[in-house]
Design a binder for these strands. Structure first.
Length: 868
RNA sequence: GGGGAUGUGGCGGAAUUGGCAGACGCGAAGGUCUCAAAAACCUUUAAGGGUAACCUUGUGUGGGUUCGAUUCCCACCAUCCCCACCA
């Protein structure tokens, strides 16, 4: 052990040794409890960023802890290697996406290895490996065989910037999830996965995740699936055999309807307009609304509509309602038609007011007050009773809903119905760099899957990526032209590739059996390792990856491959690491070193707008490069800093001084460990029993604090995973050791007992530091004469007896205000504490001449004297 | 419009089955060591008052429950995130 701490040297040494000894490689071991610790696979963008550090640091701390607690810990890693950015980059540089991706993997792997994360690299998976995507294709065919996939011409979301179609989830908010460009609609022949068949399961199983997944992720998924219960009601079109179905969650308000409003794309529109004088006017209006939708702006547009000239009959009271079309009714939700009830709905209200449609009163407060039909400010919960609704008047809203739905069913013009916001998952991409769809189109036999023994369908190499329209694969005749597996006649290969989110649905199943060439994985291995015990990743996947992977798991279950409903037992969404930005009105974004102490621009001297903490980005000049940081203070300090600056799920702010602080702390540990090292190693290695009464006060104190802190750190791992407070506790323990060291100096020590006590504190400190600073811990541990690595060393235990306080401080309050403190034994009885408190000088002063009504005693904590 | 969260010193954050608010760190001030500096070590650091022992106020705001509220309840304000003419 050197006198000074040289992080880079130590880190290299241990990274080499771990790799050589295969320290983190694991296999199934039925005799040991497993722990599957997983961080989201990395997209092969080319460079590691600070978000990776945060992600890995959390996962690695937990992996180390569980390993030391004796679990059989699987901690694998892999690459999300297909996708549009690699293709775009390759087009730009005139290279091959494969080369770009392989280079990125090589470089990023080097970066990640410098962080010294305890990954089992033997299980590494890259989704662009044919050995991997072969099984995407295999799943695709199995799902096709079972009708879980279908192909149809449908409007799809299209990102004009990346020239790629997007699933609904990827186009959330009307913008491309990756580049943020506004999405447009395109008609395309696409493969879809029937995820909507699983809507109920995906929703209901969220209950099982309650408390184990972050609330907001569960809420976002619920919201996204968007189940709502209501009814379909058919309105007969007047003077026609046609009828229009409407979806409503509030059938009880149907007496307040003043119109039927259709989406401009509604199929019944043509029939309604038949023979109407303003037919052409309405149709061209509809065209305009459709056009408006295609390039829909993000902000709300004003409600616009037009009367078609047709009427529909309200089946409850046979009232004739005008049929309109309007821009605020969406074809893709419900039935694409609504009944407008201005008294019950903000949008209908606005629409009715604009076009002077009649208002009808239907609301009554519980105390019988009628709410005017045009008073929309009355909150929903205030009107629970219906009025003016025929035979259902006076019923509660809930009751009316139920009975009116029954009535509609009995009369055959309506039915209880459930709708969802969730749409089927469009998984086709007309791009090159993805998993080829393993299907063949034959004129005679239609769509025929590639036989299993011909898998994988391998991506051809050297493909020209710069093609206009369609997929680059369309232009590769030797790929496209095949024989039909059924009739052996000429046929065409499907040239779509799969959405890369297919790749990541099941990659962590593959980690369990990464080299299996007969099946995607051995179900027995899955039975051992799954579910993932702790998953760690970014919140941005709340309704993307995390809903797809839940769906895929259910599909695999229904294919008989796995036996679980939910693949991820616990989820942690880590916060982002942000940093201050500096903005000069003249020179825009500045690096911190371009800002003077007076907060002015060092180039032009103008005042700088400083202090906004934002997500790190190159353009804002506030990005921090992890490798540069490792070169300064080492990976251990970097990891320690990221974890110490806040709870794992919260956003953090990068601070150079904070990072230095982390490094300073490690050096502090190193110094005290170095100082005591020779004494401890040379002393007897037997674990002598320590008789408390033979010890001095400062010795007993260190021993007690050590056991207390082991307890609190251990509990924190088990319960909350607030790693920042674990680190605080380690710092406290370090401070205690320094205090102890000073006492020893003062007593001209060390004595034999001092050395023993020091060892009892320093060794647990080193061991418990491992999850945060594994390289340094291993180095110190070795220097302390341990033959075995920390990776196989048990987590320190604590003795509750030794952790027990000898004397505790009890707060004394008078009327809830702190007046004094007293010292007592932890087992002091309530009466003891009570009489001690009442005898206290300050209490006597505060209570002088007043009546004591009660005395409340909380054992070991406080006494409250209540006056008057 | 719907949903989810958050609000504590100069800063990051501790403390939650209701029981001493501010652990730990950063920053700052003073000191020791040194020719000097760095590092390290020691002391102080919520605000206001007092020479001092101490006193008063204080966890976004206003109420409530309680012997006692950062914690529970109600209302409000502010900030952030997600979804959104979703019927």
């Amino acid at each position: 052990m050197k006198e000074k701490y040289f992080p880079q040297e130590i880190e290299q040494k241990w990274q080499k040794r771990w790799a050589a000894q295969k320290t983190f490689e694991v296999t199934e071991d039925p005799t040991r409890e497993k722990f599957y610790c997983l961080e989201m696979l990395a997209y092969t963008s080319g460079r590691a960023h600070i978000g990776h550090v945060s992600n890995f640091a959390i996962g690695d701390a937990l992996a180390w802890y569980k390993r030391m607690r004796g679990f059989n810990v699987m901690h694998p890693f892999g690459w999300d290697a297909f996708g549009q950015p690699a293709e775009t980059a390759a087009i730009k540089d005139g290279t091959d996406p494969e080369k770009f991706t392989r280079d990125a993997i090589a470089y990023m792997k080097w970066q990640f290895q410098k962080m010294g994360i305890s990954y089992d690299w033997s299980r590494e998976v890259a989704t662009c490996d044919p050995e991997y995507y072969k099984w995407n294709q295999w799943f695709f065919i199995r799902m096709w065989e079972r009708g879980m996939l279908y192909r149809k011409l449908a409007p799809v979301n299209w990102c004009p910037r990346e020239d790629i179609s997007l699933s609904n989830e990827q186009a959330s908010g009307g913008v491309c999830w990756r580049c943020g460009s506004p999405v447009i609609q395109k008609q395309l022949m696409q493969w879809f996965a029937r995820i909507t068949d699983y809507a109920d399961q995906l929703l209901d199983d969220l209950d099982k995740l309650e408390g184990k997944w972050p609330d907001r992720v569960i809420a976002m998924q619920r919201n996204w699936i968007g189940r709502s219960r209501g009814a379909h009601v058919r309105f007969k079109v007047a003077d026609s055999v046609e009828s229009i179905a409407v979806f409503t969650t509030r059938i009880d308000t149907i007496f307040g309807a003043n119109a039927i409003v259709l989406a401009p794309e509604h199929p019944a529109l043509e029939k309604v307009l038949e023979g109407k004088p303003n037919r052409d006017e309405v149709l061209s209006f509809a065209e305009r609304l459709k056009e408006q939708r295609k390039t829909r702006e993000l902000e709300q547009v004003e409600k616009e509509g037009i009367f078609t000239g047709g009427y529909a009959e309200n089946p409850f009271n046979n009232e004739r309602l005008p049929i309109w079309i309007a821009n605020f009714v969406l074809i893709e939700y419900g039935t694409g038609a609504i009944m407008a009830v201005p008294a019950g709905d903000q949008r209908d209200f606005e629409f009715s007011r604009k076009y002077h449609l009649p208002f009808r009163q239907i609301k009554l407060t519980p105390d019988g007050r009628e709410i005017p039909a045009d008073d929309l400010d009355a909150p929903d919960e205030d009107w629970t009773t219906t009025v003016n609704t025929g035979e259902w008047s006076g019923l509660s809203s809930e009751e009316a809903n139920r009975r009116m739905t029954e009535h509609a069913e009995a009369r055959g013009f309506g039915k209880g119905a459930i709708t969802y916001k969730l749409r089927d998952w469009g998984i086709s991409r007309q791009r090159y760099w993805g998993t080829p769809v393993p299907m063949i189109h034959c004129e005679r036999d239609g769509i025929v899957p590639v036989p299993d023994d011909h898998l994988p369908v391998v991506l051809p190499k050297g493909v020209n990526l710069k093609v206009e329209g369609g997929s680059p694969l369309d232009h590769v005749p030797e790929y496209v032209n095949v024989t039909c597996p059924k009739c052996e006649g000429p046929a065409r290969r499907d040239t779509d590739t799969m959405d890369t989110f297919v790749d990541s649905t099941w990659y962590y199943f593959r980690y369990c059996d990464p080299h299996n060439d007969r099946q995607p994985f051995d179900p027995e291995k899955i039975a051992y390792w799954l579910p993932v015990d702790q998953y760690i990743g970014g919140i941005e996947h709340a309704v993307l990856h995390l809903i797809y992977t839940r769906y895929w798991t259910k599909v695999m279950r229904d294919l008989g491959l796995v036996k679980l409903d939910e693949p991820i037992a616990r989820l942690l969404t880590q916060g982002m690491v942000n940093k201050e930005t500096y903005f000069c009105p003249e020179h825009e974004w500045l690096f911190p070193e371009q800002v003077t102490e007076e907060k002015t621009c060092s180039i032009c001297g103008k005042a700088v707008i400083a202090g906004r903490v934002e997500k790190m980005s190159k353009s804002k000049k506030n990005a921090v490069d992890p490798i540069e940081m490792i070169n300064i203070h080492g990976a251990d300090a970097l990891r320690l800093f990221v974890l110490f600056s806040g709870p794992p799920d919260k956003d953090k702010e990068w601070s150079d001084t904070g990072f230095e602080g982390a490094s300073r702390y490690l050096q502090r540990v190193w110094r005290i460990a170095y100082k005591w090292r020779d004494r401890i190693v040379e002393a007897s290695q037997d674990r002598l029993t320590i008789e408390a009464r033979e010890l001095t006060e400062y010795q007993r104190k260190l021993l007690r604090r050590t056991h207390q802190l082991i307890r609190s750190i251990t509990e924190n791992y088990e319960e909350r995973l607030h790693l920042n407070t674990c680190i605080s506790s380690l710092m406290e323990l370090t401070n205690e050791i320094y205090t102890f060291d000073q006492s020893v100096e003062k007593h001209h020590g060390p004595t034999e007992a001092d050395v023993r006590i020091a060892r009892e504190a320093i060794e647990p400190l080193i061991a418990m530091l491992t999850p945060f600073a594994p390289h340094m811990s291993e180095e110190m541990w070795e220097a302390y004469g341990h033959a075995e690595d920390l990776a196989v060393t048990p987590w320190p235990g604590f003795d509750p007896e030794l952790a027990r306080e000898e004397e505790i401080e009890v707060a004394v309050q008078v009327n809830g205000k702190l007046r004094s403190r007293l010292f007592a034994s932890p087992d002091a009885s309530d009466d003891d504490l009570r009489s001690k408190a009442l005898a206290d000088e300050k209490v006597l002063a505060a209570t002088a001449g007043q009546d004591i009504v009660r005395v409340i005693v909380i054992p070991r904590k406080l006494v409250n004297v209540v006056l008057k």
